[in-house]
């Protein structure tokens, strides 16, 4: 799951920033390495929400600074979603 999530997120980040996927790793920093500004950060968040059908909290977005953190956030949200489904 984590690996495919990471791949998908790198693809989204590549689309938004214009950097090639090969230039983006888990350790890549959105703001320092990819020139992501506040608008692009929201754009990435919205694309992730659409792709994974999850909802990222707005106040959480500024704290997500690396690809790795984005992957962790998405994995946690997917886990929560799965648990909610099971609980129902």
């Amino acid at each position: 799951m984590t690996e495919s999530v990471a791949k998908e997120i790198i693809s989204i980040v590549s689309d938004v920033t214009g950097f090639e996927p090969e230039e983006i790793s888990l350790e890549t920093h959105f703001y320092n390495d990819l020139e992501v500004d506040s608008i692009k950060a929201i754009e990435i968040a919205v694309a992730i929400e659409k792709r994974f059908k999850v909802s990222v909290r707005d106040d959480e977005i500024p704290n997500i600074t690396t690809v790795k953190q984005a992957v962790e956030v998405v994995n946690n949200l997917l886990k929560e979603k799965e648990q909610n489904v099971q609980a129902q």
Binding site: V16, I39, K40, I42, E43, V46, E49, K50
Partner: peptide, 15 residues
């Protein structure tokens, strides 16, 4: 406008 109406305000691309 089309994106906002179709997808909802949350999913409009701010860029």
């Amino acid at each position: 406008d089309i994106e906002g109406l179709r997808e909802g305000p949350r999913y409009v691309n701010p860029s």
